[in-house]
């Protein structure tokens, strides 16, 4: 596989604070890479470093084999980026005017981009509003305009920083479809950051998890699920658990108990499903009546929470 983006031992610090602490990863051609992390983890810092908007202290970033620090202008011609925040575009201009303007910034005349512009306006469902001022739009429409303006020069690499932040379900789905088609049909390489776990889970080939500037995980979704294969059990019983029960649960693994007026729910993640019998034995001994049992696969959100809290410990 061809590596399109390579980040090696990247360090970005502000005095004594490390925003990025020895980050290394790569993105292959046509791959969609998800970048997950809590606020302030270093996702945007990484994207800005790739885009040369930030100067880093140590490490190396290469795009198609070219080091970004030395080949800034060359590499930018092949990157389209939608940065975090709603104001990536001019609100007093229409989608069409925005696209024309940002094409001009890339040295392209409106005549040259007409076909691509029309295609994007239709593809992103902006055609009917192409002459309206962006300020009149919903957040979703503004985001779509920002996307169209960012890729008018037909880049092969897309960097999307929180593209679905604050968007409604319909727009999120539109953007999801568009991202998938960009990768599948046009073989574009996509790096995407988001807080939206289900969104990332549904579109990404590989996921990076970052916290406090450190890379915690770099795996495919199936690798992650395999690595954290334990299932989540939820058992609701009548009454409350005694302290003795809780001690026994602790010997099996981490647990969480939610108590209501007449019942209690025990939640546990078990690596070995046979361990459930140990829990049943404890409940049997106490003669607890089981009201409900629920078994679920761990979601990306569970894995993410697990990884990031483990790091805190």
């Amino acid at each position: 596989m061809t590596k399109v983006i390579t980040v090696d031992n990247l360090v970005k610090k502000y005095k004594d604070f490390y925003a990025l602490d020895d980050i290394s990863f790569s993105v292959n051609k046509g791959e969609i890479l998800g970048f997950l992390g809590p606020n302030g983890a270093g996702k945007t810092t990484t994207i800005k470093s790739i885009l040369t908007l930030l100067e880093y202290e140590e490490g190396k970033i290469c795009i198609n084999g070219l080091e970004v620090k030395k080949n800034k202008n060359k590499i930018l011609s092949d990157i389209g980026a939608v940065l975090e925040g709603a104001r990536n575009i001019y609100w007093h201009l229409s989608p069409e005017e925005n696209i024309n303007y940002f094409a001009g910034i890339m040295g392209l005349s409106p005549r040259k981009i007409k076909e691509e512009k029309d295609y994007l306006l239709k593809k992103l469902k902006l055609w009917d509003v192409k002459d309206k001022q962006v300020r009149e739009f919903s957040k979703g429409m503004q985001q779509k305009t920002a996307i169209a303006a960012s890729i008018i020069h037909k880049p092969t690499i897309l960097l999307l920083d929180e593209p679905t932040l604050g968007l409604d379900v319909e727009t999120k789905n539109d953007i999801r479809e568009w991202i998938i088609s960009m990768s599948r049909d046009e073989n574009k390489t996509i790096l995407i950051t988001s807080h939206d776990m289900s969104f990332i889970e549904s579109i990404c080939d590989r996921i990076l998890i970052i916290k406090k500037g450190k890379l915690l995980s770099n795996n495919t979704m199936s690798e992650l699920k395999e690595k954290f294969a334990n299932k989540k059990y939820s058992i609701t019983v009548e009454g409350v658990f005694s302290e003795e029960d809780k001690d026994k649960f602790e010997n099996i693994g981490e647990y969480k108990i939610t108590e209501s007026d007449s019942s209690s729910t025990l939640e546990m993640s078990l690596k070995n499903s046979k361990e459930i019998y140990n829990i049943f034995d404890i409940l049997k001994l106490q003669n607890k009546e089981i009201l409900d049992i629920n078994v679920s696969e761990r979601t990306l959100e569970d894995i993410f929470t697990n990884l990031t809290t483990e790091e805190d410990k």
């Binding site: 885009l51 040369t52 202008n73 980026a81 940065l83 575009i89 001019y90 910034i105 040295g107």
Partner: peptide, 18 residues
């Protein structure tokens, strides 16, 4: 103010030229 400054920096033509 408009939040578009960084977008201008993303042009391969260079910010000085822009």
């Amino acid at each position: 103010q408009k939040g578009t400054l960084e977008k201008l920096y993303l042009s391969h033509l260079g910010i000085e030229k822009i």
